[in-house]
């Protein structure tokens, strides 16, 4: 009967899980390739010097070919080389932003969720204030006040990003704090800080991890947007957003200068998203058979 039918037997879930695993694997493989490329850029790049300030005016704006797979830019640098080096900057920004935001957000969130009451209210009001500003606008304002640089981009984005983690963690931690093993630990006389960091934190992390991987693509896009607006990485550093910005005027004539860095952003953001989506499905306790 329709009102009392079973919602998916454990056996039926296997299919979903496999699909989630495929997604996660695809994302992880693409990311592994990108990370390796970034790490090995000096050895992989056909023209390592082009990652920096080298110029070859004679070879400016060559279309993609055997010598230059992705062509060359306005000052004759190999676009493929600069994309490899740019991966370092973009990934570094993503990791740094998410690291800062997660450490700050998760710490405050887990404390708020476990303590509850006034402590929770105060922490949540602070996050509300940060959330009240449009993220890109706040980053822009910060980037304008501080000197344009990679560090500025990292700080600016992290400042707008952490409140999401604080909120997410607080709500998860609150439900974890109500579970039996937390009561048991309290009854044993385990001090509150130990309860928070030994029990509440590890059991609240799964959704945060998933969110982090889903967010990584967004961070790279935001960082690229800031660079594109001239507020992030500066010449001659290789950074994908900056490359798009510098190449945009050439789009109709020398499409490769802007297209390849744009594709790099897209693929990386996509890989993180797919990985996050896969993790979310795979780690979701409701979809995983015990």
């Amino acid at each position: 009967m329709t009102t009392v039918e079973l919602r998916g037997t454990p056996l039926r879930r296997v299919g979903n899980l496999a699909r989630a695993d495929v997604l996660a694997t695809v994302g992880a493989v693409i990311l592994a390739v990108i990370v390796l490329a970034a790490l090995l850029a000096p050895w992989l790049a056909p023209y390592p010097a082009d990652g920096g300030s080298a110029t070859h005016p004679a070879e400016a704006l060559l279309p993609p070919g055997a010598d230059h797979w992705f062509g060359t830019d306005q000052v004759g640098r190999d676009v493929f080389t600069r994309i490899l080096f740019g991966a370092r900057t973009s990934l570094f920004i993503a990791v740094a932003v998410l690291g800062l935001a997660a450490v700050a957000g998760v710490t405050l969130g887990v404390v708020a969720g476990y303590a509850g009451g006034v402590v929770r209210d105060v922490i949540m009001r602070i996050t509300d204030v940060f959330l009240a500003f449009p993220a890109l606008l706040l980053s822009l304002a910060l980037a304008v006040v501080l000197q344009p640089s990679v560090t500025t981009v990292i700080v600016a984005i992290a400042v707008t990003w952490w409140p999401w983690y604080a909120r997410l963690t607080a709500s998860v931690a609150q439900s974890v704090a109500g579970r039996g093993f937390i009561d048991a630990a309290r009854c044993l006389g385990v001090p509150a800080p130990k309860i928070v960091f030994r029990h509440v934190l590890p059991n609240s992390l799964t959704p945060v991890l998933v969110q982090l991987s889903l967010d990584a693509g967004g961070v790279i896009l935001t960082a690229s947007a800031l660079s594109y607006l001239g507020l992030g990485a500066q010449e001659p550093a290789a950074e994908w957003g900056l490359m798009v910005e510098q190449g945009q005027t050439l789009f109709t004539t020398d499409w490769w200068v802007v297209t390849f860095p744009g594709l790099a952003i897209l693929v990386t953001a996509f890989a993180f998203n797919v990985l996050g989506e896969g993790l979310r499905a795979g780690l979701d306790p409701h979809r995983r058979a015990r």
């Binding site: 009967m1 329709t2 009102t3 009392v4 039918e5 079973l6």
Partner: peptide
């Protein structure tokens, strides 16, 4: 045959009832 001839009653029926529907509505629709 499910429902009309043979019906399943589960351990926690509340979980099986649509929380957004009055019981009367549920019965009427069924």
């Amino acid at each position: 045959i499910r429902g009309a001839r043979i019906a399943l009653v589960m351990q926690s029926p509340q979980a099986a009832l649509n929380p957004a529907m009055r019981l009367g509505t549920l019965m009427r629709r069924a």
